[in-house]
Design a protein around this nucleic acid. Structure first.
Lengths: 113, 113
DNA sequence: AATGTAACTTGCAATTTGCAAGTGAATGTG
DNA sequence: CACATTCACTTGCAAATTGCAAGTTACATT
């Protein structure tokens, strides 16, 4: 069941799903290979843990990410993008590229883990 | 002067500039050829007028849009994307395309005026 | 002069954020 | 085995942002 939509516009609907201050950054971290809560929390933007927990839940609910048992640390969960989540990669690239070309002082430090 | 940035990541910086609930929709309207306050306010998402006024100011401040005297209704102002604002078009397209392909029930009604 | 309309502004109430501190389970250490 | 850590969250608020409705101001039309 989709979150509440403001209109049927595909752009507006996409924003209703991932268009807040933090969700896309969490997706970015997953796209870079990060998997654990702590790693997301340690990103330079310093997302608050309550918001991170909330966004992770919503990403899972929305089918963009999935929780799975962490292979290296048994007992803990990890997160990864689903197939649907992976399709957002070009969207993130478009946003990042725009920033790189139009905002002075941004640096492409997006490196996979 | 750029708005406060959470990190130097180009993706994060782009979001710091336009990554809120409404800004991108206003840019969409401008990209569709809408020019007046009333037109933006009449979009199906029904942005509140105080927020619209605030976002228009910030878009102008940020150099993505510009105010100019309305040609058809003298005395009033109109808004249009600047060159920099126009470069966001592919970003909006990426977001809209993703919605169209991944969110059921979205319809591409994005038609220029 | 009275009415209308566009473009805001103002006043709040309701959400959402952000920060700090706390909790509970699983590990690591002596 | 007792004890301190670490991780993954929760909880409690205060502060900021949103959303809604009702003004207000300037210009134009009747």
């Amino acid at each position: 069941m989709p979150a509440k939509r403001r209109s049927p516009c595909p752009l507006a609907c996409t924003l209703d799903l991932i268009g807040d201050r933090w969700t896309i950054l969490v997706i970015r971290d997953m796209a870079l290979g990060r998997t654990h809560f702590k790693e997301f929390a340690n990103s330079p933007e310093k997302i608050a843990t309550n918001i991170l927990a909330d966004r992770l839940d919503k990403l899972v609910e929305g089918g963009l990410a999935e929780r799975y048992p962490s292979p290296e640390s048994p007992g803990r969960d990890a997160y990864r993008l689903t197939k649907k989540g992976e399709t957002l990669r070009p969207v993130l690239m478009a946003l990042a590229e725009w920033g790189l070309e139009n905002l002075p002082g941004t640096a492409a430090l997006m490196k996979a883990k």
